[in-house]
Design a protein around this nucleic acid. Structure first.
Lengths: 209, 209
DNA sequence: GTCTATAGGGTGATAGAC
DNA sequence: GTCTATCACCCTATAGAC
């Protein structure tokens, strides 16, 4: 009844890549942690690099598919569009934390890790998701110029990536002020802030000292 | 008049850590790039780890000191407070890019890199900066509850970190739509979005599907 | 499919001559 | 302060027995 070798490798890789980083995780430590033989990584996957891509594919593709499914139900309601974007990711991250295998840091780092971390398959779906949400935001916010909207969508991605990637840091600074395991609360905070940012006026000049 | 050995090591380390990542940069490649001897790293710094901290200290402390100086002039004007927070970082990142030694990715990753990347010295100043800006935002936004403000400040940090950490990715997706070398434009976009997010109403319930 | 053994090479750190 | 040489160890990937 324990999962098979291939899945155990994926599980351990996910955990260690998240906590130690990809480059700091050797295949020896990884296979020891998984309780499998060192050579099995190269048998089931071709290389460490391919393993990394398999780990990310398994996590990110379901998230992005759920985003597309939820977006189809959101209409032009800005909060629902944002919910469709954030909820699948927050669910995946907090579910994994509850199961003792936190992936927050891994998900938070996918945009900024050096090297070609993502397979073309994952990249293609992420690009598709970006295009769909861009169109949805345009419909919901017809007064925001496309160039400003492009920046703002990246800011929406960024606040989420940072929330996941620096979750331990945020938790440390909170000192009980906020709960990082309350997903509805986190979603409310992210959505409220992102909606305010997306709707903001002033993509031209103004401000600065 | 080339800079001395210690500085050349710092310069090369900064460049390679940014482009390849800390864990992927070996001291051999680093010292070859700097044109110095391998052993000089352990002479001038004690270890690779201490070198990492020295690299970050040199860049981050001036940024944080400028933030404090600008904040003192901002009063309770939200846009000026945000300008005080973002401008020193955007300046440092874009200056370095113009000089052919881009540090954006390095700065963008400091919050999410695994391991204890930052020295206690840098941590202390960053914590101080966070407290000061938190107080300033509270004065400028008396109606935002402290718990919501705590999240929102992290979102403000996150959109900046992601903008730097994923700058090459953003540039790739832009396809000429936006310019990533126009610092006043980037600052305008970041400040407008962050101001909208910070001011948003709805830290309680509402929204979601 | 799973194992052992090992090839072939890279790593951070240091001793000791200059 | 700077060099060479080297220690002691870790790494990914693979060949070949079972």
């Amino acid at each position: 009844m324990p999962p098979d070798t291939k899945e155990r490798i994926l599980d351990s890789a996910e955990l260690l890549f998240a906590s130690e980083g990809v480059a700091n995780t050797s295949l020896r430590v990884l296979t020891d942690h998984a309780g499998v033989n060192l050579a099995s990584v190269n048998y089931h996957f071709q290389s460490k690099d391919a393993l990394v891509q398999a780990v990310l594919y398994r996590r990110l593709n379901p998230i992005n598919e759920k985003r597309i499914a939820l977006l189809a139900l959101a209409g032009v309601d800005l909060h629902k569009i944002l919910d469709a974007f954030y909820r699948p990711a927050v669910d995946a991250v907090l579910d994994s934390a509850e199961q003792g295998r936190p992936i927050a840091a891994l998900v938070g780092r996918i945009y900024s890790e050096p090297g070609e971390l993502l397979s073309s398959q994952v990249r293609a779906l992420m690009s598709d998701v970006f295009q769909r949400f861009f169109a949805a935001f345009q419909s919901a916010l017809p007064n925001v110029p496309p160039d400003a909207l492009f920046w703002r969508m990246h800011f929406c991605v960024g606040l989420m990536a940072h929330t996941f990637g620096a979750l331990h840091l945020i938790e440390g600074m909170a000192r009980g002020r906020v709960r990082i395991d309350d997903r509805e609360e986190i979603l409310r905070q992210m959505i409220a802030y992102a909606a305010g940012g997306l709707k903001a006026d002033g993509g031209s000049q103004c401000a600065s000292s």
